[in-house]
Design a protein around this nucleic acid. Structure first.
Lengths: 246, 246
DNA sequence: CGGTAGTTTGAGCCTCGTCAAGCTCCGTGG
DNA sequence: CCACGGAGCTTGACGAGGCTCAAACTACCG
């Protein structure tokens, strides 16, 4: 959680090979190092507000944030879970379409919006990486729509743990989660509920049910151990290839 | 529905200014004209199958298609409604992530996948347009997640008509639907239900309810007239700016 | 030890899904 | 001209899954 000693150098950056800069060569990195700036914000702070100007575009370096929209009557839906290497903001747009909130202490690698827009225009390696990342996010958003639209509460909760385990694995360079994994939950039950389109009570009940069925262990409210990943993935409505069951 | 007489020329193409080619200049269009080919497919035909190779990337020129995923037990969720100017397929990926099905007779402007990938690499105007369109689709997918996760059946159906009216308006060059609009529904009740994460029965009941409340008129099962767009938008959980109520 | 935020559990209700029947629209054929 | 049949849509009755309201439990912190 603490900042790395030499965060200023792109070479040692923890998200060097996954973020928007992933395809950049040494000379392009040099340009980025001149224009970037870091900012850390404590858990609970807003990083952006729906409809409000967003002056900086950034990569999330450390921590976790949620992207959500809240309706007048208080209903809230999280539309994206932001983890290290994820990009925040949209080049070419002055305002944020969503509320973005740090759910843990967060470190950002920021670029002034106009500067970054120029970088996208003039650096093909950034433009192509940006496109690839956006296409990946689009697939993820559509996959999540299947969860929101068609899955039961139990499947939703199982799907959430499965996707967290997957991102944890790819984040640490594996391409498949190990058979058994222990996850730290970045989200409270309430934030999980907002992500899953459920109430906090239903979410909690389903966590309990999965635990009683031996599909997960819950050492503390913010930790989940998955003893058999494949079995949980099946519970989430997937086949063993990791695709949704055809 | 019938093909335009001179569809071969990009200049008169109905989606010239909205599709992936929108930013191209005359010389770039000339390249596209050499490599593109048209294909028409009848309503009900598959354009792609989840997990199967997709040889051609294309722009939808005329008609309507759905992008969906079906679970083993038959539950289906539509994750995108494809209308003229929408892009089909993902450069850099050999297979389709979703089932894509023509729901009306469809005309496609196609490019062989490898050819198009080269075009994206070598034509900045295509790459930037591709990025803009993908970012727009991402926003649309996230907005739809709010509908799927947090809206009631009534709000879902109202939201669908509202978004159809908006796309109808922007497709015909306005930026706001007129106060009263008549829509042809491209989707059957079943396809609507799959898009909304509802059953066909609930969808039908909510259409009836909106009609009885005077929010819509239903001259035939495939037509909807919206007498007061603002009033329907409010029913869909939006404020008068077209954003979701803050 | 008391206070508070987060979580879990319980009881009852409501919305939406399920199952089933009936209706409308059309095309076909007697 | 009407009987027939099928697909798509609507309507009804009923039940279940998830939401609401409420209370109790836990962990953490002053």
């Amino acid at each position: 959680m603490a900042s790395r000693p030499s965060l200023r150098s792109c070479e040692n950056c923890p998200i060097r090979h996954n973020a928007v800069c992933a395809e950049c060569d040494a000379s392009e990195l040099a340009v980025l190092e001149r224009t970037k700036s870091y900012r850390t914000v404590p858990a609970g702070s807003p990083l952006a507000t729906a409809g409000e100007p967003l002056e900086y575009l950034s990569s999330l370096v450390e921590g976790c944030a949620t992207m959500s929209r809240t309706l007048e009557d208080g209903r809230r839906q999280t539309v994206g879970l932001l983890l290290p290497s994820d990009f925040i903001g949209r080049p070419g747009r002055k305002t944020s379409a969503y509320d973005i909130e740090a759910v843990s202490d967060v470190t950002l690698c920021r670029f002034e919006r106009r500067t970054f827009e120029r970088l996208v225009r003039e650096t093909p390696h950034i433009a192509t990486r940006m496109l690839t990342m956006t296409l990946d996010e689009l697939d993820a958003a559509r996959d999540w729509a299947v969860v929101l639209g068609r899955m039961t509460a139990r499947e939703k909760v199982a799907s959430f743990f499965v996707s967290l385990a997957r991102r944890h694995a790819t984040g640490s360079g594996q391409d498949q989660p190990a058979r058994s994994v222990t996850l730290h939950l970045p989200l409270s039950r309430e934030a999980m509920a907002d992500h899953l389109g459920l109430t906090i009570e239903t979410t909690s009940r389903q966590v309990t049910a999965l635990r009683k069925d031996g599909l997960i262990e819950v050492p503390s409210a913010r930790e989940v151990r998955i003893p058999d990943f494949e079995r949980l993935a099946l519970e989430a409505g997937e086949d063993d290839d990791g695709g949704l069951i055809a």
